[in-house]
């Protein structure tokens, strides 16, 4: 059995062992700092008394950046994407999530503008 087990192990497509995949503690702290600064910016922006696109658009942009930072660094998405090496599955999954979310945007638009 153990030989067969080895045989299966030989097909292993795992990544090179020496490479340090996960970021350092310093990166994590800096990431946190960036998130705090962005949050502070968001709150400040909301107090400027703006409305409409001038209020919403910058807030949404900052929100998306925060989203990307947490997913990328804390959830190791950037390094795990390396593991999958830009695998088509990752791309397809990302597109699927994007399209799925856009479905809700369409619903909201249909209500909001009665198109």
């Amino acid at each position: 059995m153990s030989t067969e087990s080895m045989a299966v192990g030989d097909h292993s497509t795992t990544h090179d062992d020496d490479h340090e995949h996960h970021p350092t503690a310093k990166t994590y702290w800096l990431t946190f700092l960036a998130l705090v600064i962005l949050t502070a910016l968001e709150v400040a922006w909301s107090y400027l008394g703006l409305s409409g696109v001038a209020l919403v658009l910058p807030l949404l942009i900052m929100m998306v950046i925060k989203f990307a930072i947490v997913a990328g660094v804390f959830m190791h998405l950037y390094t795990d994407l390396n593991i999958l090496n830009g695998h088509w599955f990752t791309v397809a999954f990302g597109i699927a999530i994007g399209l799925a979310v856009s479905v809700y945007v369409v619903v909201f638009a249909a209500f909001q503008f009665n198109i």
Partner: peptide, 8 residues
């Protein structure tokens, strides 16, 4: 050392 998975 990882184990075999098709995606890695």
């Amino acid at each position: 050392e990882g184990h075999y998975t098709s995606l890695g």
